[in-house]
């Protein structure tokens, strides 16, 4: 590491140690969806020194996004989300390669090709609908972990999915999950859930996932955190 780079990460390197810090610096991660969760996850990973981050979304910034999608401001309304997010992330740090991809995640199969080509170690599900999540999951390359998060009102859930080792999102949510557009949600739970997802991405990179095989439910109405074991 050069001196400036060492200084940038000087507050977390003592906690993580040189080996884990280096793993973060060398890792590539894909963030699917750059809404509330995606903005938080991306910003934390960039500030953590992730080597390369791929941002996938096809949306544009809209005014109702601004209360919780922390990479965007009023000046960004109307802009393509991944491009606005990439610009902000590059201002935050020059130590991460940021790759914006304007693409919808659907059942076309494009996502599988994209994820394979990007050689990402972890894919982060920050999407806002279940059909998109199922399509994303179907495109995850063998051996790659999927860190999933979802939020609504003032609660959220996070888990890590590994094909063959844990229930898939399709098995977990099946067709009972609703996916109404424009879900009501509060800023604190979005940023909290996103922060937990970012930490779990790091855990996965270090080979010590905390949420593989269990669902963490974050509930702000009574400030409780619960696990649901999954099988």
């Amino acid at each position: 590491m050069m001196a400036e780079e060492r200084e940038y990460f000087s507050r977390c390197t003592p906690v993580w140690g040189p080996e884990r810090t280096q793993k973060v610096r060398e890792a590539a991660v894909a963030v699917a969806g750059t809404g509330g969760l995606g903005c938080t996850v991306a910003e934390i990973l960039v500030r953590s020194g992730i080597g390369r981050i791929v941002l996938i979304d096809k949306g544009r910034v809209d005014i109702p996004d601004l209360n919780r999608q922390i990479l965007y401001s009023m000046d960004d309304v109307g802009k393509i989300k991944v491009e606005a997010a990439a610009g902000k992330l590059r201002e935050i740090s020059t130590f991460t390669e940021v790759v914006p991809v304007v693409r919808e995640i659907d059942v076309s199969g494009d996502v599988a090709v994209l994820l394979r080509d990007m050689k990402c170690a972890v894919v982060v599900d920050c999407l806002d609908n279940f059909p998109g999540r199922f399509a994303l999951e179907a495109g995850i390359p063998e051996g790659v972990s999927l860190v999933h998060g979802g939020v609504e009102r003032d609660y959220g859930q996070i888990t890590t999915v590994v094909r063959g080792k844990t229930p898939t999102l399709t098995e977990l949510y099946s067709d009972t999950a609703s996916s109404a557009p424009g879900v009501s949600v509060t800023p604190p739970v979005v940023v909290t859930a996103g922060g937990i997802m970012a930490q779990e991405v790091l855990n996965v990179l270090w080979g010590t996932p905390s949420l593989q095989g269990r669902l963490l439910v974050v509930e702000f109405s009574d400030f409780s955190f619960f696990y649901i074991p999954l099988q």
Partner: peptide
Amino acid sequence: KMKRGTLILVNGRHVQH
């Protein structure tokens, strides 16, 4: 019948399975 929007998990497994 089960409504969309709520998971019923038995020991962490969706009852649909």
